Simulated assay, not measured.
Amino acid sequence: MDLEVSEPIDFSSGDHQHLVRKAADSNVQIKSGQSYTTSPSEPQKTRGNPHSKMKERADSYVVQISDETTPNDSNNLANPFSDSSVRRAFIIKVFLILSAQLVVTGAIVSLFLFWKGLKSWVLKNAWFTYAILPAFFVVLIVLACCGKLRRQVPANYILLGLFTVLQGLLLGAVSVFYNAEEVLWATAATAVVTLALTLFALQTKWDFTMLNGMLFVLLFVLIIYGILLLFIRSYWLHLLYAGLGTIIFSLYLVMDVQLMVGGRHHHSDLDPEEYVFAALNIYLDIINLFLFILQLIGLGR
């Protein structure tokens, strides 16, 4: 029996088992045929018989062992985050961008809090807030939907900086309706909660990235709930709304941090060039968490 290598065989599909059984059966038949031959000159006759060569040729099988990588290996090679240095540089860049966003936002909100002339002007001119909203949502949609644009430098930094300024102006317009003490308490509470949730997301073995679909449904329900509260004046319903919003965006913060860190989590499929998108997600989680905590403190007082 001859073994030649010409065509690939997938050993994971079980094709080789059929070949092994067929080769074994042919070997048994050959041995059984040889047991009936007693003449020593029979092998010499067989060498000269062309039919025996054809029979030997028919009993040859083709096996190829390929050194190609398995699907899991190819996925690991295709994943740029398989290199720990790339993941570390990505995380550092995201946290630096996020820190700059929070500093700019805090500076803008401080102007609205402690500049009494600006605070009174915003209270008298409600159009200021409504004028910022369209530009805010346009820049947000561009950053969320235009993947190529948010990967291009410096366009991605310009858009993110413009979005951060618009978000700071909106927060400043909202903060004028609260006391400075309430805003400071909400800022401190948000900082503590954000730090605690970030450390929890980095240390826990629970995979919150699998909750993406459920959190999206809860966010949609929360939006509908908020629209209904525009027409319903109830203290307890508003308190429940603020509490639910705080819980939902706390879970979103944990999930987005795990998406950024990657590793053992199932849906850690961010690209290394998506540092702006990752920073934007975490920034929005922190801002929404701040707004709901501020609403809780305002209702509590």
Rank of each mutant, 00 (worst) to 15 (best):
M1Q: 13
D2A: 15
L3T: 09
L3C: 09
S6W: 09
S6D: 08
P8H: 10
F11S: 10
S12F: 11
S13L: 09
D15V: 04
H18R: 08
R21V: 11
S32D: 07
S32Q: 15
T37Y: 14
T38E: 09
T38I: 15
Q44C: 14
R47F: 09
R47H: 08
S52F: 13
K53L: 11
K53S: 14
M54A: 12
K55C: 12
K55S: 08
E56I: 14
D59V: 06
V62D: 12
V63C: 03
D67I: 14
E68D: 13
P71E: 03
N72M: 14
A78P: 05
N79T: 08
S82L: 07
S82R: 08
S85A: 08
R87G: 01
R87L: 00
R88Q: 12
F95Q: 06
I97K: 02
S99T: 14
A100G: 02
A100K: 12
A107P: 03
I108A: 01
K116R: 14
L118Q: 01
K119Q: 12
N125C: 02
A126Q: 12
W127E: 07
T129H: 13
Y130M: 11
P134L: 10
F136K: 11
F136Q: 06
F137R: 09
R150A: 02
R151V: 06
P154G: 01
A155M: 11
L159D: 03
L166E: 03
G168V: 12
L169A: 10
L170A: 01
L170M: 05
L171C: 04
L184T: 10
A186N: 05
T190Y: 04
T194S: 12
A196Q: 08
L199C: 11
A201E: 00
L202G: 05
T204E: 07
T209F: 00
L211F: 03
N212C: 13
V217E: 06
V221D: 07
L228A: 15
F231H: 12
F231I: 13
R233A: 13
Y235K: 10
H238C: 10
H238I: 12
L239T: 05
L239I: 07
L244W: 04
Y252S: 00
L253A: 07
V257L: 10
L259C: 10
M260P: 01
V261I: 15
G263W: 09
G263A: 03
H267Q: 14
S268R: 08
L270P: 05
E274F: 00
A279L: 10
L280C: 09
N281V: 04
I286Y: 02
F290Y: 14
Q295R: 15
L296A: 05
G300L: 11
